[in-house]
Amino acid sequence: MNLGGRHAVSTLNDIIEIPIDAEGDIVRARGTGRDICRTLGFAEINQVKVATAISELARNIHQYAGKGRITLKVLGAPRPGIEIVANDEGPGISDTKLVLSGTYRSRTGMGKGLLGARRLMDYFELVSAPGKGTHVTLRKFVR
């Protein structure tokens, strides 16, 4: 798989890790994810959904944790697709259930990105606690 040297930061067995340190990294993560989806044969609308979800997670890292990383992984048989893992060691979320229920209202829009990302993807898992950082796993399958 050739994703072009511009995006690939470190690749090992179709796993790409992109550090999120600056705003420009959000665009880079997004572009890399979209490239992978294109290579995997995702429909165009789903390429956009994955790219959007990635940029939401990357934006959350940048905005709330300052830095972290996005790991993109190609899923093979039995169900080909892409897995996106966002990790940061930021302040974390005290009530993940509340944030994901949609009833939580914040001035910063915190939680909106997570809710939206969940809607856009096939699989969503959020692990977070105060002082423990935030860890999100998303999956989208080719079909």
């Binding site: 939401e56 994901l100 949609g102 009833t103 809607r119």
Partner: peptide
């Protein structure tokens, strides 16, 4: 239904 609506709204806001 309320949660799904919130998700849809979040997606719309992102879009």
């Amino acid at each position: 239904v309320a949660m799904l609506r919130e998700e849809e709204l979040a997606v719309l806001a992102i879009q």
